[in-house]
Amino acid sequence: MSKEVSVWGSNRFWQRSAAWVTGFSAMLLIWLTFDTVPQITMGNDADLQNGITKRVPGPTVINYKITYEMSEKRGHEVPVIGEKEAFFGRDDYSEDEARALLHLGKLASQAKNCMSCHTLLGNGGYYAPDLTKSWLDPMWAENGPYRGMTGKNTKEEAMAEFLMNPSQYPTHERMMPNLGITADEAKGLVTFLKHMSSIDTNGFPRNFGKIQGAVNGK
C-alpha cells in the first residue's frame, strides 16, 4: 500500500502488535511453567517423614492416614496427612514399592479408560462420580454401605473388590462395567486413588463428604 494511512489502519502496525502480544504471552506462560512444574513435582518419602508439605506428595503417602480439612489460613479444605495407617495390611511400604504400585495404578487408570466416564481432578467424562477424593468418600468408610456390600474389612480391600467385579455390586441403575481388572491392578488403582486424594487441589471439591459428617471415615 503506497497510500498514507493512520497507524490504526496500518496492517504493519497490527502485524507487529500481534507478534509482540503473542510473544509476550507465550514467554509469560513459559516463565510461569518454570514456577509451577517444581511445585507440582512429586515429593518423596523424606518429605513425608519430615512433615514437609508438598502439593503432590510422594507415593509413600499410602502409609499414612489422609483427611480433608478446612484450613482457616487458606479459606478452603486441604488434604492433611496424619499418623500411620495400614494399607492392605502394611504401613511400611518403601519408596520403590509404593512407586511401583502407583505406577501400576496410573497405567491401569489409562489402560481402562477410567477418565472417559469418571472425572479425575474434575477432568474427564461426566457419566460417573468424580474420583479426586474418592478415597475419602463416606460410602467406603467403616460404616459406609459399600464396605458392607463387598463384605470386606478394610476400605482398600472393599474398593479393590468393587473394581474387580463392579457389575456384581450394582449400586445404581447406571453401573460400572467389568473391565477385566486383576487383583494386582485393583491394588494399584486403589493406591492411585489414595495418592490422588492427598493432592492439594485448592479446595476442590468443596465440602467433600460433609454430609453425614463422615469425611474422615469416622
Binding site: A18, V21, T22, S25, A26, L28, L29, D35, T36, Q39, I40, R55, V56, L121, G122, N123, T132, I199, D200, T201, N202, G203, F204
Partner: peptide
C-alpha cells in the same frame, strides 16, 4: 493469543497447581 494463551490458567484452578 493475548487472551487465549494465558487463559489456560482457568484449567489450572484445581489440578494441584498453585
Amino acid at each position: 493469543f493475548g487472551s487465549g494463551i494465558l487463559g489456560i490458567g482457568h484449567h489450572y484452578f484445581w489440578i494441584g497447581t498453585p
